[in-house]
Design a protein around this nucleic acid. Structure first.
Length: 101
DNA sequence: CTACTGACTATTC
DNA sequence: AGAATAGCCAGTA
């Protein structure tokens, strides 16, 4: 779980948040839903945003209002994985990573 | 070359 | 907390 800006910085591109977005959009099989905006904000609009929120919820990510609880799942902060809720485990196993193809 | 466009960010009010 | 603002950067027209 991380943010566009954080990923960019880690990649040596201090101002490349938008480039990270490009990469996520074009890339295939990337865990795109695990990258959010600064402060844990879901940057996708409308339906897409709801899907991302759902995918994260399935992975046991906690939300603080409309944003992801980066304090708990943020990276580079200690990647504390929370155990997914009971019913979601099977879903998680059944629906791996992404899409688009 | 200029203008516009984002799944962006940080700052300021 | 939300809106405006000004940077940012590569792709596209």
């Amino acid at each position: 779980m991380s943010t566009y800006g954080e990923v960019a910085r880690r990649a040596g591109l201090p101002n490349g948040a938008r480039l990270v977005v490009r990469a996520l959009v074009r890339g295939r099989g990337l865990p795109w839903h695990r990258v959010v905006g600064a402060g844990g904000r879901i940057a996708l609009a409308g339906e897409a945003g709801r899907e991302q929120r759902l995918r994260l919820a399935i992975e046991g990510v906690r939300f603080r209002g409309r944003r992801v609880d980066l304090a708990a799942h943020g990276w580079p902060t200690p990647p504390r994985i929370r155990s997914p809720s009971a019913h979601s485990v099977s879903e998680l196993r059944r629906a791996p990573i992404p899409y688009s193809e």
